[in-house]
Nucleic acid binder design. Sequence first.
DNA 1: TGGTGTGAATCGATTCACAGCC
DNA 2: GGCTGTGAATCGATTCACACCA
Lengths: 212, 212
Amino acid sequence: MVSEKTIGRLSLYRRLLTELLADDRLNVYSHELASLAGGTAPQVRRDLMAIGYSGSPSKGYDIADLADSISSFLDNPNGTRVILVGVGNLGRAIMSYFKIQRPTLNIVASFDSDPKKIGSDICDRPCCDIAELETKALELDVRMGVIAVPADRAQNVSDKLVTAGITGILNFAPTRLKVPDHVYVEHVDLTTSMEKVAYFVQSGRKSTEPDA
Amino acid sequence: MVSEKTIGRLSLYRRLLTELLADDRLNVYSHELASLAGGTAPQVRRDLMAIGYSGSPSKGYDIADLADSISSFLDNPNGTRVILVGVGNLGRAIMSYFKIQRPTLNIVASFDSDPKKIGSDICDRPCCDIAELETKALELDVRMGVIAVPADRAQNVSDKLVTAGITGILNFAPTRLKVPDHVYVEHVDLTTSMEKVAYFVQSGRKSTEPDA
DNA sequence: TGGTGTGAATCGATTCACAGCC
DNA sequence: GGCTGTGAATCGATTCACACCA
């Protein structure tokens, strides 16, 4: 079983590999990839071992081939359809972030409660009434949701997503969501991130960890 | 030495405590706080032990007093002055997020390269020309910066922040920044977070980890 | 009885160190 | 010689389990 941390790093490696490809590079060594990713060479090798990928001692890893292997491990071959709830500044930022994304990750619709937004298009995707969240989510056959609403609305939205059959949530609201066991939640907590940095500034401690 | 993970959880506990206070609660037990935070009771107790805080076996922890103790551990008593670079949707989202924040964390100015933004106020704070980043940062005496610019500009901005004496960076750009040893960097990588959730949806694996 | 505080055990992730290969 | 792949060692964080207390 591949660890959660390894999953995150694989995603990072893939992005770095794509950049290297654009530079017409063909091969990388684990220590190069490690340095780009801010990690160590043995760690890169372990991560790749986890998905059963092998390089060659002379050439290192074939960049294009490795990127493909990571993709076939991480991605759903049919793509992942996503809905986003909450079209404030943050929601819009996320929408535009993933508009340019490869078709693997596809935000197919957004939801809000503001009548001024409902019915319009946000980043070329329809913005629907949050009251229709459950029915539309079923209709659109999505399995993943992004929550970018204020804290006091988040649990309610989460519940609706879960009853609509969603099994993965990326939550930006500063609340720990309660979800059933089969649902995966990733919390992105801006306040905590901010306060952590502030603590390290204040205490004069330096960075150690390779990061979340 | 208090671990990085514990720092993050302390920030979360403080927020939860504040919410409990607003509900007129006076005391909490470790298992209650744990359940709100999505962790375990022994972990809460260890975290509090790390900052030398003691509760009472009968009453648990005094909410107001504990929140104060966490604050005096985490916060700089003089507050932390922050600048934000990159006033796109994400930058604006962050600005408005922390406008309402207690005075401990204070975004004092923003920077952008768009002439339409320069000179105006964003969330009641001046938006300055990114060309003036170094001089203004020194002038404003800030130690912490938030990077919300596109990936290809991030390293350059980071370098400028570092030469201006900043020792903590919260980075939203999808790049691993290279910084000197004494600078703390926290990466918030939206693409990776998104891809992680997509992986767990696709693989049918459920949540385990208490989270980043 | 039902808490807290904490040494000891466990668990997981990272790093070491080296065999095998080009 | 410098790389990969990987068992073994290490390190850090979490959890257990229990003494102690109100």
